Simulated scan of single mutants.
Amino acid sequence: MPQLIQRTELKTFYYTPVHCPFCGVRVMGADPVDETRITACPHTLFIAHDTAFEYRSARLDNHLALDGMSEQQVEARWQDDARGIDGFTDTISLPDAIKVAAYAPAPSAYGSYYGFAPIE
């Protein structure tokens, strides 16, 4: 069985900017004028939150057999997982893939998820 994505969780410093562990690119909030702008490097597999994917690479879509699906079909697929988008992205099995999960503290149950993998 292939190894599943490695994961690390940010709970105290959940607001810390996330950088690609392979090339160092800041993937969220990289633009000082627009902190919400996503900057995906070639290693970025996905950027997601509990409510939706913000970014999905073609490599991720291919790996999870999402290519050719509408956004509604993709959403239905991860919503079918009892663990939501967090659990759905835990099923990635690309070699040496890494996931950063950042959780805002209670009472917010909000999570953000960033996935990366070396380029083959």
Rank of each mutant, 00 (worst) to 15 (best):
I5E: 00
I5Y: 05
I5T: 02
I5S: 01
Q6F: 14
Q6E: 14
Q6R: 11
Q6C: 09
T8W: 10
E9V: 14
L10S: 05
L10I: 03
L10H: 02
K11D: 00
K11L: 12
K11Q: 06
T12R: 14
F13S: 08
F13T: 10
Y15I: 06
Y15M: 08
Y15V: 06
P17Y: 04
H19N: 15
C20G: 03
P21E: 03
F22I: 11
F22V: 09
C23T: 11
G24Y: 00
G24K: 10
V25W: 07
V25I: 12
R26A: 02
R26Q: 11
V27E: 15
V27Q: 10
G29Y: 07
G29N: 01
A30L: 03
D31L: 03
D31H: 13
D31M: 06
P32R: 05
P32L: 09
V33D: 14
V33T: 12
D34Y: 05
D34T: 08
E35T: 11
R37C: 08
I38V: 13
I38G: 09
A40T: 05
A40N: 01
C41T: 09
C41V: 11
C41R: 08
C41E: 13
T44Q: 09
I47H: 02
I47Y: 04
A48W: 00
A48N: 01
H49E: 12
T51W: 15
A52E: 13
A52H: 11
E54P: 01
R56E: 11
R56P: 00
S57E: 06
A58T: 14
A58Y: 10
A58F: 07
A58R: 10
D61V: 02
D61P: 00
H63S: 08
H63I: 09
L64Q: 08
L64R: 09
A65L: 15
D67T: 11
G68M: 09
G68N: 07
G68P: 01
G68Q: 06
M69A: 07
M69G: 05
S70R: 00
E71Y: 11
E71S: 14
Q72K: 13
Q73L: 05
E75I: 06
A76Y: 01
R77Y: 07
R77G: 07
Q79L: 05
Q79F: 04
D80Y: 14
D81G: 13
D81V: 09
A82R: 14
A82V: 14
A82E: 12
A82I: 13
R83W: 03
R83C: 03
G84Q: 05
G84C: 06
G84Y: 02
I85E: 04
D86T: 00
D86L: 14
D86N: 06
G87C: 10
G87K: 06
T89I: 13
D90N: 13
D90Y: 08
T91R: 10
T91V: 01
T91W: 01
T91C: 06
S93W: 15
L94S: 05
L94E: 02
P95W: 14
P95H: 08
D96M: 08
A97T: 00
I98Y: 15
V100H: 02
A102S: 09
Y103P: 00
